[in-house]
Amino acid sequence: MSKSEQRSRPPRKEPEQVWTPRTKLGNLVATEKITTMKEIYENGYRIQEAGIIKKLLPGIKTEVIDVGIVQKQTTNGEYTRFKALVAAGDENGWLGIGQGKSKQMRIAIEKATNQAYLNVSPVKLGCGSWECRCDQHHSVPFKVRGRGGSVTVEVIPGPRGLGLVAGGNIRNLLKLAGLKDAWTKSTGSTNTMTSTSRAVLDCLRQTFSQG
């Protein structure tokens, strides 16, 4: 095969695996007896299958937030594993974050992605800005604060057109959750993405617990 033919070939897509429910909730979703995420949270069901999230939130996206190496000294020598942090959100009021570790980077990312699906939580969107006062769901309904480790993140409602005033990683998480306009404040070691992402998720969960 010539080099020009190789360049023109489309990228190979991995075949999508067919989801086979393994839990009672999974069967209810597969048979369409439960058709929305709202029903699951109102009834207090525990989600144990990523396929449930993929079916009920078909527009959900994932993003690798951070990757790294974990080294541990043992009697047999140095033990090295990869770790990955992944966020999952539909950009319309749902966000989850997961972490995975493995000897292979690809498997670590897969584990983190699966965990992110299982940790998806609702985010209440609204317009709590006194400068805007519209009825659209482009920001948070009121100021919220969350904490993860030594990191504290505060999200403040912003008027339409403001955009997301935040650092790159925090901005990406807020966008995945569905926010379009907001101010943010953060304290602590925000370079530690595990703590920062947990702080953001805890912060956005406050939109429901306080509302």
Rank of each mutant, 00 (worst) to 15 (best):
A166W: 13
K13E: 15
P159S: 09
I53F: 12
E91G: 06
G188R: 03
Q136H: 12
Q115P: 05
T75G: 15
K83R: 13
N92L: 13
G161Y: 11
K13C: 12
E14W: 11
S197I: 02
P21V: 00
G26M: 01
G59S: 15
E63K: 09
V18L: 10
S189A: 12
Q99G: 12
K143Q: 14
G89L: 02
K13L: 14
G51I: 00
D202I: 00
K103M: 15
A84K: 01
A166V: 02
G146M: 00
P159C: 07
K54C: 00
V144G: 12
P11N: 08
R171P: 09
V140I: 05
L179Q: 09
L201T: 04
T184E: 11
A50L: 04
V67G: 05
V120A: 04
G100T: 03
Y117P: 03
R171T: 00
G178A: 08
E49Y: 01
E14A: 14
V67L: 12
L174F: 06
K185A: 09
S2R: 08
K83H: 11
K54Y: 05
T190L: 06
S139V: 04
V64D: 11
T74F: 11
Y41F: 15
K180F: 07
N172W: 04
K3C: 06
Q48V: 02
I34Q: 07
I52M: 01
S102M: 03
L179W: 07
A84W: 11
Y45T: 00
S189Q: 10
T36H: 13
A112Q: 05
V144R: 13
K72F: 07
Q210F: 09
E42D: 14
L118Y: 09
A88P: 04
C134G: 15
G146C: 03
K72R: 15
V155K: 11
R46A: 05
K111E: 08
W19Q: 02
V120G: 04
G96Y: 12
G167F: 10
N191V: 03
C203S: 04
E49H: 00
E5R: 15
T184R: 06
N43S: 05
G26N: 04
Y45N: 01
R133Q: 14
A177T: 00
I97D: 13
V151Q: 06
Q115E: 15
G158V: 01
R81K: 07
E110A: 10
T190S: 09
G146N: 03
